[in-house]
């Protein structure tokens, strides 16, 4: 193993690029985490608004959570849709 240490590219590539079979799993991880965070953020913003403006009413909390979860869903869906085929945004074709 000591001899193997000097070969840096393999760990680097592994760090940079995930193994192909792990692609979907990774996407799933990001989606879940982002949903969690954005729904949490919406929840919190709803709570604050309900306490501050709406006299502790419940609906601002739900609305805020809904906004956060909706946004995370949208992002996740987008990542799943364009992941299979490589994105063609910004590509240019050289004419022969």
């Amino acid at each position: 193993m000591a001899e193997r240490t000097p070969t840096p590219p393999s760990p680097v590539t592994r760090a940079n690029r995930p193994m192909s079979e792990a692609l979907l799993n990774e996407k799933w991880d990001r989606c879940l985490s982002s949903m969690l965070i954005r729904s949490g953020l919406g929840l919190s913003f709803g709570v604050v608004f309900s306490f501050l403006l709406f006299k502790r009413r419940a609906w601002p909390v739900w609305l805020g959570t809904g906004f956060g979860a909706g946004r995370a869903w949208e992002e996740c869906d987008n990542s799943f849709k364009h992941a299979a085929a490589p994105t063609k945004d910004g590509l240019r074709v050289l004419r022969p």
Binding site: S20, E21, A22, L24, N25, K27, W28, C31, W73, C76, D77, F80, K81, A84
Partner: peptide
């Protein structure tokens, strides 16, 4: 074998599948 496992998860995906289809396939 690892790869086959992962591939089976994505075996039912349609084209241009979104989050819902992925979750369904999974």
């Amino acid at each position: 074998r690892l790869v086959a496992h992962e591939v089976r998860k994505a075996a039912l995906l349609p084209e241009n599948a979104g989050v819902a289809s992925h979750a369904a396939s999974l």
